[in-house]
């Protein structure tokens, strides 16, 4: 397994390298002077000259790339055109909001999707099966922004149960350590703030989590059905084991393997959905920031976001592969 993991790790490197090249080239593919693009239309000639020097724009591409990589590895992503703050600072402030949202959405999706799939599989063609598969189909067919708006209308406007925006009521003041408000309020021991931040998380997380939830339910069901047909399960059954035990002991782990493989993928999709969800719920995360950066042509910021998100995606997949290797012993022998 060690060799397998090492191989996976090594394979992640060229992807990350490729991502950095693409982000690097992105700026140079946009029509116009890269220095101008980096600093915006209103940059002074003096600042332009400075950045040309800094980026080495008069030098060959590979020199420019190596300079860019050196800065990148030093954690210097430049400054945002619009806010003039360091891109790293901006990412540090905004990324945790998205992490919190996507993790919450993933929890919602797993907690509901997998049990629903298991129950559906064990009671194939029952009313529950039909109903939950219909809901799952609905889930994958729904635009996340529409679902978000409908949730907002029903639960916030109509029933008044949940807040409409933000991560925490302003009356709470918790020290920001991780910028994950749920974690920060636990660290501060402020349980009211914890409850409040969770309360703010519910609607966005449900909106964002619905699609992966539906996917997990459908996958778990079909994978479970497959496993239940396997010989060893039949053997277990014929030995007279209780059905519950058959499912829990012999089938579940194997049935979940394919589900685990798509968790990483679904995380990537969540980042997709986050762009829309954050827009609907005014969630100050990186999805909204990315959208704004694109619309404001804030390229230094956009570069930073793309690098961060792509790296996160690659690393999540790596982690999933490790879990996968652990779950599926056959990997050893490949």
């Amino acid at each position: 397994m060690g060799r397998y993991l090492a191989k996976r790790l090594l394979l992640a490197i060229p992807i990350l390298f490729g991502v950095s090249v693409i982000v690097f080239l992105f700026l140079r593919l946009i029509p116009g002077d890269p220095a101008q693009v980096m600093l915006g239309e209103k940059a002074t000639p003096q600042a332009l000259a400075e950045i040309r020097q800094e980026m080495g724009l008069d030098k060959p591409l590979y020199v420019q790339y190596s300079r860019y990589m050196v800065k990148l590895l030093q954690g210097d992503l430049g400054r945002s055109i619009t806010s003039h703050t360091r891109v790293t600072e901006e990412l540090g402030a905004r990324f945790p909001a998205t992490v919190e949202l996507t993790i919450a959405a993933m929890i919602v999706a797993l907690l509901i999707g997998i049990p629903a799939g298991i129950i559906s599989a064990t009671r194939q063609y029952s009313f529950f099966d039909n109903a939950s598969m219909f809901v799952a189909l609905l889930g994958v067919s729904m635009p996340v922004f529409w679902l978000g708006l409908m949730l907002l209308w029903f639960f916030s406007f109509y029933l008044g149960w949940f807040p409409m925006s933000a991560r925490l009521d302003v009356s709470f003041d918790i020290p920001t350590i991780t910028n994950l408000y749920v974690v920060d309020s636990i660290l501060a021991g402020n349980w009211a703030a914890l409850a409040n931040s969770l309360w703010h998380l519910v609607l966005p997380a449900v909106a964002l989590g619905t699609i992966p939830m539906a996917t997990f339910a459908r996958m778990t069901r079909s994978s479970m059905l497959e496993v239940l047909r396997q010989d060893y399960v039949r053997t277990a059954r014929s030995k007279g084991l209780a059905e519950r035990l058959v499912i829990a002991k012999h089938s579940l782990k194997n049935a979940l393997i394919p589900v685990v493989t798509v968790i990483g993928l679904e995380f990537g999709l969540l980042l997709n959905g986050a762009v829309m969800t954050e827009t609907i719920f005014a969630w100050p995360g990186i999805g909204k920031l990315a959208f704004d950066a694109i619309m404001q042509r804030d390229f230094p910021l956009l570069q930073g976001i793309l690098l961060l998100v792509a790296a996160a995606f690659v690393l999540i997949n790596l982690a999933v592969d490790m879990i996968y290797a652990y779950l599926d012993p056959r990997i050893h022998y490949e």
Binding site: P163, M164, S165, A166, A282
Partner: peptide
């Protein structure tokens, strides 16, 4: 004194009615 950004006009009014602003 806190200035909060709530882009949607109707959501902002709703938050006012609910008392969070």
């Amino acid at each position: 004194l806190i200035f909060r950004t709530i882009p949607e006009n109707s959501a902002r009014l709703m938050e006012l009615q609910s008392g969070s602003i």
